[in-house]
Simulated scan of single mutants.
Amino acid sequence: MNDKLRTDLFGSVGVGLRACHYAHVELNYPAIPWFEVLSDNYLFDGGPGLRHLEKIRAAYPVTLHGVGMSLGSTDVLNWEYFRKLKSLIQRVEPVMVSDHLCWTSFGGQYFHELLPLPYTEEAVRHTAGRIRAVQDFLGQRIMIENVSSYFSCRYAELNEWEFLQAVADEADCFILLDINNIYVSARSHHFNPEDYIAGLNSRRIRQFHLAGFEDRGTHLLDTHSAPVHAPVWELFRQALSKWGAIPAIIEWDNQIPAFERLQYEAAQAQEIMTHHVNFARVSTPVCDGIEFGK
């Protein structure tokens, strides 16, 4: 079992590595504990992007995060894609590998969208089987991330967090819990985001995502183009209270600011996490080695 993320990076906050920040990182080697890398941008044998990644990887731990697995699709798994991904894994030795609990292709056509699945038992079995096949091929467990969604199926048999939990348990994989996506989906589907946190009782969660959304009035749009909003910070605190100081990443993919702005956002998350760790150390009641309230 690859569980390095929980041990090596536990209690730390990193940022997503973007091409516009290569020069800054390579020149200044900022005090960031780790980077999350968009794996789909590096599925090549060479090129400047891969050279930058290898240079940065020599100084920092990285995780690989993708959008192309299409784990919930009815298409045949794209084994050429996974061969390229496995080669990248062998090349950069990431701490963990992740993708989304969704489908992104149909009939061999990729939509470049993270489309939600129907929350049914059939979809649980179908998607979990594909995840197991991918994990067998890659030789390691992966993390699956909850996506933001804007529509739902009338014939759903489970709610979203029950579906996420069921797939992870059936596939024996890990969960990358996107706190921002929980809040965005909660506004779309009119559920209490706190129920989502309360409803996940698994130790499978290995990483958090934090990002900013855009308020369109009628709905929130998951754009990764803004600072983390106050209600998302509050959900983050609740997640920390339940699961502890699990590693977190700041995502910022559109209207990307200077690297120092990302560092400021990561420092805010780190302060919240550190406060949680210190608070838990002095306030969590312990009896016969068992911590209550976890």
Results as ranks from 00 to 15, higher is better:
E271A: 15
Y110K: 13
H224Y: 10
I32N: 00
P30H: 04
G244V: 03
L176D: 01
Y183W: 08
R187Y: 13
R57A: 11
A128N: 10
A248R: 01
F151P: 05
N78L: 04
L220Q: 11
V282M: 12
H112I: 03
P227F: 07
G108Y: 10
I32F: 00
Y183Q: 02
T284V: 12
A266P: 00
I290V: 13
F292E: 08
H126V: 06
S98F: 04
S283N: 11
D215V: 08
T120S: 10
A123L: 06
I250P: 04
P193G: 02
R91A: 03
T127I: 11
R18I: 09
V95D: 00
E260N: 03
T74D: 15
L71V: 14
R18L: 10
Q207E: 12
E80V: 15
N2D: 12
V76E: 15
F106Q: 14
S188Q: 14
G49P: 03
V97H: 01
F213Q: 10
I144P: 09
L9R: 00
Y150D: 00
S87Y: 14
F259L: 14
P116N: 04
Y196A: 11
P193C: 01
Y264K: 13
A123H: 10
E122F: 11
A258E: 13
Q140T: 15
L64G: 02
F151N: 05
K4R: 15
G217N: 10
P285M: 07
R216E: 11
V76S: 15
H189N: 01
S149C: 06
L115I: 13
L240I: 08
F44D: 14
L9A: 03
G107I: 13
D45Y: 12
G199N: 05
